[in-house]
Design a protein around this nucleic acid. Sequence first.
DNA 1: CTGTTGGTCAAGCATGGACTTAAGTATAGG
DNA 2: CCTATACTTAAGTCCATGCTTGACCAACAG
Lengths: 121, 121
Amino acid sequence: MLDQQRVDQVFHALGDANRRSMLERLSRGPASVSQLAEPMSLTLAAVVQHLQVLEQSGIIRTEKVGRVRTCSLAPQGLRLAERWINERMNLWERRLDRLGDLLAEDTQSEPQPKKHERKKP
Amino acid sequence: MLDQQRVDQVFHALGDANRRSMLERLSRGPASVSQLAEPMSLTLAAVVQHLQVLEQSGIIRTEKVGRVRTCSLAPQGLRLAERWINERMNLWERRLDRLGDLLAEDTQSEPQPKKHERKKP
DNA sequence: CTGTTGGTCAAGCATGGACTTAAGTATAGG
DNA sequence: CCTATACTTAAGTCCATGCTTGACCAACAG
């Protein structure tokens, strides 16, 4: 649970639409900083700042060769987010299943409706 | 592609550690507002504000009965985020596969890499 | 009724984050 | 060497967001 820090960074990074749009571009292949900047209505400097956030969170990886920095996706960063989400959903759905089972058992002895329904007072 | 708005809301909502911690709590079962607030070092009002963000993004669902509002996870919200992530990762990994195939073909005929590669000075 | 609990609303503050401009560095090309 | 390219860094602006306080309201207990 020490990667809570990382999870935090990753989700924070994903929380920005511009950064996500850069990620969409990168998911179709590596790109240089200025290639990434071109379709955006942002300064190059701003793009660089976003890239720093993305790299620090581990979502992308960059390498500078000559004077051009090439960025590419590092799926293990995204996988962290995916795992977090899956864990929450699994927990929740398993809970629903167990609950369903209990209700099913009850209906054998008591004349209750099958699903989880509430009455209005 | 009109749910870009929704995707934005969901990721923004997930971008906050306090909100995620509430989601962790909720993934183990529904809870009232004050139950959610209790383990956090936040005012009740602040918690309520976070809950509004979470509900508007579709990640949770809340229902008020009497004077207590009960919150529960709505997995379809999280599923939206999961899908976005999966799509990016799939695209990227498929690309890597195709690239691997190309390289494999090339190594049969030519011992040189095809594309623009530079040496480090 | 009164008091308490559980939650809501409305300002307001204060910090952080996104962006910009501007100046600087290093590399490629002629 | 000179210039253009491809970033990089620093500094400052500005707005969104997170949080607090304080007043308020509705439901239930006694």
